[in-house]
Amino acid sequence: MVKKPEIIIEAKALEFNYPGDSLNRSSAINGIDMTVNRGEYLAIIGPNGSGKTTLLKLFNALLAPSGGEVLVEGISTVDHEKVPLIRRSCGMIFQNPDNQLVATTVEEDIAFGLENLALPSAEIRQRVTEVAQRLHLDKLLLHPPHLLSGGEKQRVAIAGILAMQPRCILMDEPTAMLDPSGRREVLDTVKALNREEGIAIIHVTHFPEEAAHADRVLVLNQGEVVEDGPAEIILTDLEMLHSYNLQGTAVVELAALLRQDGFNLPTRILHNRELVNSLCQYERKS
């Protein structure tokens, strides 16, 4: 018997309208049915205003659905008493870490959520130490967060979530404010958490290069899920991406132009090395 994947998040006929937003003719979220499985790395892409951030906020119970429902590990997000439980199992990382770091030292910041759970201090200490080691923040524990680099700040934010032992981490453009090495730092951290600890990741991004880290990619447009599939299929379907005003990575775009020029290249080229390898084979053949 095939084991059924365990569902972490389920949206059923989900709808959301921002109150008083009469100017927008359509809803922010317009009838979404989807599930996220345990241990999955899901990227969500879509143009500005397509509902990506709204969807994450609905998953995290920061917003309550106008219609339909969201179940996080089987618990509805409108169940007020269970909201802390939902936020513990699905933590959220925002675009700008400065909006999310609250304490005067890294240590206290990581411990913030745990203290609110009123855990015994010995356990808090232990979890903070473990998480800090896991994310290579142990040398920074006594530093004030505002003096860290962008990548370090974002890792502190992730550590605060991780200390809660979540099943899932929601990330809203987590690298938008970071430099290239900060971006790499955060993406490597998140990938390791996903691969090694089976934490599900839902990653909203404007960058196809980042979505390429995911197993599965979902395209949102005007509050609806318009595409949903494996990264190598969604991110190489340029005709579809362009139809929603999205772009492919540089290599996907270039491979498409080269095919138009008569290069016989495989259809699913997503990474630089794949194009380089194809060109090498080309050379050998001719």
């Binding site: 430099d179 290239p180 090495s181 290069e209 990575t249 540089a250 290599v251 270039l254 630089n272 090395r273 194009l275 380089v276 060109l279 090498c280």
Partner: peptide, 17 residues
């Protein structure tokens, strides 16, 4: 800690091969 523009990086990867 900086990166190249994606297209430039791709061309350099091709040249490196």
């Amino acid at each position: 800690g900086l990166a190249l523009p994606s297209v430039t990086e791709l061309m350099q990867d091709i040249a490196a091969a």
